[in-house]
Amino acid sequence: MTHSPSSISRPLPVPPPLSARARLAKWWRGEATAPAKRVQFDRPLTPWVFLLPQLAVVVIFFYWPSVQAVTSSFYLEDPFGFSATFVGLDNYTDALSSGEYLSTATFTAGFALVVTALSLGLGLLLAVKADKVIRGASIYKTVLISVYAIAPPVAALIGMMLFDMHIGPFTQLAGLFGYDLKVGVNYWDTAFAMTLIAVWKQIPYNFIFFLSGLQSVPVSVREAALIDARTGWARFKDVILPLLAPTAFFLLIINITYALFDTFAIIDVIVKDKPANNPMTLVYKIYLDGFKGNDIGGSSAQSVILMVIVAALTVVQFRFLERRVHYG
């Protein structure tokens, strides 16, 4: 490979207001956002070689099917594909005008918030402690990580048995305190069980990434911090936390996505496949209507609504929250 130093160095300018055209032009040249690095390569072809495999997979296996999902959202379709009636925005208005849908949306937001906060917090706490100890460190790590490996249907089965209305240990425990825990009948009891299991399953994930983030903090930095440090908390807050910020930002987005999307299997098991009057998330509703109920148009419309909400959320996070993340 021939070498030609071709990187450019661009300090961050304070941008004057641009015309739409100029903005578009900058965007085309790839200068729209603040550059990821102060120093970058400027080669015409090499990035394409690196980017192409991922891009190809994404276009074929994500965009192609997703476009079909968006198209179906404007139709009422017989599932076997014999006839489809164009109904415009009916599927959207049907979903959004149902009180059921709105209360599901409210629950989803609260659920995502609680699950994200708890699993991130506990994952971070355990990772920081595991990073600190030397004696027995690998045992702790193995134990904490290996929980992640338990098969989801069995994890859910365990959760279901623990909360069994008649013989579940948690139900009996609550009974000792005079509380009649009825998961599957009482809305908030079910919500509690769902949250606990969802958090339990996600802690190891956060633990692994926080730990790997912590372990890549150079020893020299730690020692410097140790010399400076007044208290452990100050050391953590001023030195370690900023270094963890990129990982934390990654995990924040992943955890929100997890709480929104990947928890539907847990919900399905807790409500024993019959949601009745129990809380559920928006994705569970999509799964219920689309996969179980074969309402392709209606569930596609719900998917699109969800995508728009989450896309907005992600853009906001990338544009505003990431400014506070300091890289390297």
């Binding site: 209305m165 008649h166 599957g184 024993k272 019959k274």
Partner: peptide, 16 residues
């Protein structure tokens, strides 16, 4: 006795 929509929740007390 009503024990929700789950099949086995309503069966269990009979088994017991």
């Amino acid at each position: 006795g009503f024990y929700g929509a789950g099949w086995s929740d309503n069966l269990k007390p009979f088994e017991e």
